[in-house]
Write a protein that binds this DNA or RNA. Sequence first.
DNA 1: CCAGTTGCCTAGAGCTATTAGGCTACTACC
DNA 2: GGTAGTAGCCTAATAGCTCTAGGCAACTGG
Lengths: 190, 190
Amino acid sequence: MARVGLTAERLTLAAAELADEVGLEKVTVSALARRFGVKDASLYAHIKNARDLRVRLAALALDQLADRAAAALAGRAGKDALVAFANTYRDYAKQHPGRYAAMQIDLDPETAAATAARRHAEMTRAILRGYKLAEPAQTDAVRMLHSTLHGYVSLEKAGGFRHHPRPVDASWLRTLDALDAILRNWPTDT
Amino acid sequence: MARVGLTAERLTLAAAELADEVGLEKVTVSALARRFGVKDASLYAHIKNARDLRVRLAALALDQLADRAAAALAGRAGKDALVAFANTYRDYAKQHPGRYAAMQIDLDPETAAATAARRHAEMTRAILRGYKLAEPAQTDAVRMLHSTLHGYVSLEKAGGFRHHPRPVDASWLRTLDALDAILRNWPTDT
DNA sequence: CCAGTTGCCTAGAGCTATTAGGCTACTACC
DNA sequence: GGTAGTAGCCTAATAGCTCTAGGCAACTGG
């Protein structure tokens, strides 16, 4: 019997590739087994169940994106940092739609993925350092920033913007301009 | 043989309730049949397949939300309209998590749901009338606005904000303040 | 080189999706 | 008020995915 050399890591990586190729919903234990030329049951020695596979995939994606974002942020500040971070985020979603989708699944508290999620929050906060916002405005701004980036990317991916001729890239840049403006001049009160 | 009186409409509504109760991913043809006390196969006289069921569900949700948003918008303008619209959107997502999730599924061009989606776009545009933005800034602003609302609601639902003590409602209000501010003073150039 | 562990297999049960074909309860019309 | 037709629900059957249990073969370390 040929041993293929399965490990949780190799399975997760293959799942990520599969997700990008055919979509997250088609990432199944069977499909993954097929890709390795083994039987479905063999995978259960390495992963707990199908959900576990998806959580690992989410953690992988969150980590990868965090690495890229950290690299993009190095040596930048202010709007420069904001734009670099935002573009990294959006580009990752475009290059790796399956992994991006995986990032959105509900992560129970205290999985490995929670750690990666915290890295993201810290980076977003780092961007805001250039804008000198005091708490609790800083937290509010972190939430708005994250929301806008995530929302834009996810609506773009869902095709929400394709019914209008205005180039999606142009709106993206103006959205970043707007975010920069609002962060520089965060409303102190209504 | 007892006839239950199935129709596509009743099935869609039941699917919506099921989605809100147990989550969209558990809305299955079998589960729905079980809820009506009939066999799975019987449903296929009313719906094309499982995907069709979900698309109908998405259309239902989009329509419901559009109705509520239209009602909320009646007689309001400017920030008032913005806040009413945003709160309607967020409240709907909280009251009907399953339906909200259904709204996010990929709608192929030219389903009935596309029509409902257009209603949403028009309403967002109506809100912006109070802010007197010329094209293409208006389109950019529509996209940003929609992105921020959707992103906030979806991150909140995914639990992305629960790791921090700052009340989520407070950040929401400040986010709306920020959106209002940026719309009143949309950046003309970088 | 043998003992123990690990990796992959077969078998099988349970759930979901979907198609084909049949019977029966309504509906409409004479 | 009987009957023709349609529509609603059924059984049967195929196929894919998930997951458990138990077996044997291939590596690993002493």
